[in-house]
Design a binder for these strands. Structure first.
Lengths: 235, 235
DNA sequence: CGTAGCATTGATCCCTGTCAAAGATAGTGG
DNA sequence: CCACTATCTTTGACAGGGATCAATGCTACG
């Protein structure tokens, strides 16, 4: 696991007004005049799998908008075990807690090569004072995080391992039907579902044998959605 | 379970500027002139145990500041089972999601007689436009909810039932050391820990026999904190 | 006094954690 | 080119924990 920044490639300075995913990102409906307020540059950074955006406990300097790729938020328990509490994808924001003056709550680790915009705390705070439009965006991000946290609890931490896994596949398949679902190893899978990695492996194997999923390549799955629905509901 | 409002006793119209827990509540650092902006009254409502503040799926009209008592947020799964995703106590806010135009995500049920301030959505939105101080407060509330959600996942939904129960007692005892911990039945206990109610009952019984807790009256416990710490860590 | 609701306890089965070993796969260096 | 290692996945065996079904206490209340 690499340290923050060591393998972050700086792609350039963000030009929000011409952002390709403008309607998704935090600064999406700011105007040019809003950006005149800030003079700190916003860096676009690319991270490779395994890279760490930030670690739990660090004093937070920045938030990160995820432009592409996949990032996991990991929380470590006193006894050493770890749990993945959230997955961040295109449009999500990592590190919101710095806006209330807290250190980072989680460790953010890249699972699939990710492009991000690093937004210094001062920039967000400054813009936030001036433009009410940003407030709405910020609240939406808080809401999304909270919503996902609740879903994670009720769907991925409740019921048998079979049901949890089925619900995870369904969730990951949801936003790209017919797109293959990408995972990142059985260990992480277990950490998402709150089960041991052997159980995760066994359950995936069972799904493969039953034809609920097909592993086209390592950690690349195509899913039989209706079959998985049935498992998620009836066990 | 009673329907929203049926047994809500209206205590009067809130006067935030003289609020007894002003430093805790959402509107705590607003000034009189801020309130001049609104003309909709803020009601103070008292709810009895079992009363429902709102139900999942309803179009949200208001948020609720909890002034005293205890409220659970419940989420129902497609298969009918239910899970308690959060507990709200003095100073917490229920129903933040209405601020981003969403219907209520959970059903909010009173566990211990609760006094609340009902804040109509329009009031919060109006004030939010005018005063940046409220923004900071709102973000703190989002943060608190998110933080509690993450804690809930890692502490109360991970590990054996014994550890989960120990951690729950510790969490509830945390803000009132030497104060007895109040619960609300084994069914709810199970729904918080993600275990069956029989398991919850058995585990509580075991803790009582071991002297980790003493049930002074039904659902009223005093705790041996150090002993519970040990259980939470070492199993 | 009987009933309704909740808590406790028992019995049983299955799931999952755990320890352990045996396949895969990719990368390294001889 | 192939052995060799490191890493990850799969599978096995087994014990323990929790779910589930069911019966029995317990308390409050009509």
């Amino acid at each position: 696991m690499h340290r923050n920044g060591i393998d972050a490639a700086r792609l350039g300075t963000a030009r929000c007004s011409s952002c390709a995913i403008r309607d998704l990102v935090l600064f999406g409906d700011l105007r040019d005049q809003d950006f005149d307020l800030i003079h700190i540059p916003i860096d676009e950074l690319r991270f490779q799998p395994g890279a760490v955006l930030y670690s739990a406990g660090e004093e937070g300097g920045s938030l990160y908008t995820i432009r592409s790729g996949l990032v996991k938020l990991v929380q470590f328990l006193p006894d050493g075990t770890q749990r993945i509490v959230r997955l961040l994808r295109r449009g999500a924001v990592a590190g919101l807690e710095v806006l209330v003056g807290k250190p980072y709550e989680h460790t953010a680790v890249v699972l699939q090569e990710a492009e991000t915009c690093r937004l210094p705390r001062a920039v967000v705070e400054r813009l936030s004072k001036e433009t009410p439009r940003l407030h709405a965006r910020l609240m939406e991000r808080w809401y999304q995080s909270l919503h996902q946290a609740d879903e994670w609890l009720t769907e991925l931490s409740t019921g048998s391992a079979r049901r949890r896994l089925a619900r995870l596949f369904l969730k990951l398949a949801a936003d790209g039907p017919d797109e293959p679902v990408l995972l990142s190893g059985r260990e992480d899978l277990g950490a998402m579902l709150g089960v041991g990695m052997e159980t995760a492996s066994r359950t995936v194997a069972e799904f493969k044998r039953a034809g609920f999923v097909v592993e086209q390549a390592p950690n690349v799955f195509t899913c039989d959605l209706p079959a998985l629905e049935a498992v998620a509901l009836d066990g």
